[in-house]
Write a protein that binds this DNA or RNA. Structure first.
Lengths: 346, 346
DNA sequence: CTGAAAGCGCTTACAG
DNA sequence: CTGAAAGCGCTTACAG
């Protein structure tokens, strides 16, 4: 069994036998205990290398009743926003010695239940969840019990869990104020569904900025649509059903904004030149679209690192009350909002 | 201990005690054995639910000497190409009942060693590795031993491991032929480093297509640069140092192509109108850039699913010889290559 | 159909 | 400084 190319796994017992020591002593060497005699240690380490020993963290964790993994459940990795987020999470978890268990839900709350069930069986120390649309806290609670702490990201999900939120209201407010500063008054809120908490909050920010500027939004300034490029392009016409129509739109997110830009082009209008558009998220496409998109940057990678820090902190102190953290956002002005209304400009 | 909100974990023993059965019987219920009396089963299942029992797959796997995880090691999740790939991998692994252990290397072969070491300690059944640049098979081999099968993606990495390759040569050939068909003869190969296997293969395909058309490439038609937008923009001038200059360029990848488009614009040239550009990858930006980018689509999500299938197959048959699979690619023509040379057109 | 016993690979008091 | 024994949560022959 001392042949490194042998079939089976090399275990602590193999090393102990080869060194004529007990497993306990080898275990101490493995975890760098100062108790072990230097010569003994050297002998063991040579043997570990010689046999190609691989530590079985699962067995150790079982015995020690600890876990060295954190589960990350994401709607959809092909969304660059979540991919960046995941990259940030993994980076920070790895730095802290944890391994990321990945799960994705495809925005289905059914799959979310299944994915969480499966991941929980792998005994994660904690969970970072970016909830699928229509997630139900009541169905999640019995699944999670009280043993496994969870950090919810991006979408509110009821009490009892830590929550990392984007400052949606503030972001939409920044975008709206930016457009107001360029002389716009009739500013639409375009895209998204009112039921989603992020859409709701962004509308609130838009509304607040308008109110602050003495503008009362008309009902037809709010256009709902699924947050995809295609749907947004299709709904573009809804902005122009009544006269006078909006001259600018704060979009629910970048996908919607890009769709709107395309929809405008179809109607012979050019974003940035005769209509002003802002997005939300600052996805990579935003910088290369035609025109480049003014948007609200949320730095998803930094959010990922932040989420990881929050859950690690929670692992250290399970008893502290659940906390809500609001992550900053900032305006990234580009050409799509360049169109100003000279008449009204300050 | 029958209180579901109790501190500790609910174990098989808790359930067995509550039902006045042995752990063996409860274990059989858990895994759906037909041996168990229907009433007994019902009783146990009620108790499992009542106590909020969560299966500890790690303990079961330890005893059964199996693993239900696969490690996925990716250069960089913020690259949408790899994010899509990861999404495909996770989708297929989850469907097969495996959980994905995530690791990322940031294109550092040092980190890659560390990440693999850490992941191996979690006893994955197999590994899917998209190697960091400059990966060294000789350093990887002792790490992996012969116990853990690995599937290498995208970059060749020596023998003994399964390999899923993109058909780089064919893709570059398609792009080149596309440009030839539009009348171009002086077609550059722009970007990338010759040492990287993917760049080398793509150049080969470009060369073959040119040779096939009776065109002998001149040395200055090959411009090297780091595969980033910025570097490509900086190197644009190198295409035009000698007269007659190329009228079209096959780019190493989309990032480079987008950089070239920007670099051209700086010099007053417009891709698609007075110069033809093709990319490689079909990243999301390709469809919204100005102009939209003609590129080679590799469907990274499908590649991810394929990679997962390949490693799962390997888990079923460890003894079969290592295999190389070449994934198809296809041309996605858009506006950036629209520029044709009327004089030479067929 | 159910139970007693051993064991997966590791760690942790406790002795000495 | 090292070892013997028990145990983490589960499964697997083997009895009965």
């Amino acid at each position: 069994m001392s042949d490194p190319t042998a079939r089976g796994r090399v275990t602590l017992t193999d090393i102990a036998d080869a060194c004529e020591l007990s497993r306990a002593t080898v275990s101490l060497v493995l975890r760098g205990s100062p108790l072990v005699n230097a010569q003994t240690r050297a002998r063991v380490e040579a043997e570990l290398k010689r046999q190609g020993y691989v530590y079985h963290r699962g067995a150790a964790n079982l015995r020690r009743k600890v876990s060295s993994t954190v589960a990350l459940v994401i709607n959809d990795l092909s969304n660059p926003f979540f991919a960046e987020f995941a990259a940030g999470v993994d980076e920070a978890l790895a730095a802290a010695g944890y391994v990321t268990l990945l799960g994705s839900t495809g925005e289905s709350s059914e799959r979310q239940q299944a994915v969480l069930t499966s991941l929980l069986e792998h005994d994660p120390a904690g969970i970072i969840l970016s909830p699928a649309e229509g997630s139900d806290a009541a169905r999640l609670r019995p699944l999670l019990g009280s043993r496994t702490p969870m950090l919810v990201f991006n979408r509110a999900l009821g009490d009892g869990w830590d929550y990392l939120a984007l400052d949606n209201a503030h972001g939409a407010r920044l975008a709206t104020e930016h457009l107001l500063a360029q002389g716009h008054r009739r500013i639409a809120f375009f895209g998204g569904h009112g039921e989603s908490s992020s859409c709701f909050e962004r509308r609130k920010g838009w509304q607040a900025a308008l109110a602050n500027a003495g503008v009362t939004p008309e009902p037809q300034w709010i256009v709902e649509c699924a947050p995809t490029r295609l749907e947004a392009a299709r709904q573009t016409g809804a902005l122009f059903v009544r006269d006078p129509a909006p001259t600018a739109a704060v979009c629910y997110n970048d996908a919607v904004a890009l769709g709107l830009i395309a929809g405008l082009a179809t109607r012979g209008r050019r974003a940035g030149l005769d209509f002003a558009v802002t997005g939300f998220d600052d996805i990579p496409e935003a910088s290369v679209s035609a025109p480049p998109l003014t948007t609200i940057a949320v730095d998803p990678r930094a959010r990922g690192r932040q989420a990881a820090e929050l859950i690690l902190q929670r692992l250290r102190d399970t008893s502290a009350p659940a906390t809500t953290t609001i992550a900053p956002v900032r305006l990234h002005a580009r050409a799509s909002s360049q169109f100003t209304l000279p008449g009204d400009a300050a």
